[in-house]
Amino acid sequence: MYDSGKVIIGLLIFAGIFLFPFIYDHGSPAPKPKPSLDTPAIKALPEKKCVEDTQFMITTHMQFLNDWRDQALRDGNRWYVNKEGKKIWISLQNTCMKCHSNKKDFCDKCHNYAAVQPYCWDCHYDPNGSKL
């Protein structure tokens, strides 16, 4: 091999960059977080059910909440009718966070895990009163 010193240094840099996730994780996996449903309001529910089904809420809640915001604040329509025909009052603080009052153990769990920084909290307050 010609210029082996330079070529080997180059290849080591290449391998280092592409193996970065393997080196950084050094064999410890990061299991999926479990957002807590342990709040007094949820415990008191007769049937543990969000406004739509769980799988839909897990994958699509962000688009859903964005639609809610547009409906409530831009169209002035505060009523949402879910797939079962139930009427729901559109409000992050008074509907969503009435049950999910544990932002730290619910919202933040997955958001921190997936490194998502939603801008909900630029305007909204956590019901516990602290500006986040």
Binding site: P29, T59, A114
Partner: peptide, 27 residues
Amino acid sequence: YRVDITAVKALATGIASFHPVMPEGIG
């Protein structure tokens, strides 16, 4: 066609840490 991103991350970190898992709920 949104997927559960936490499940995707569990799979990806599983691969990168040599503890592969196949979580449910990935479209």
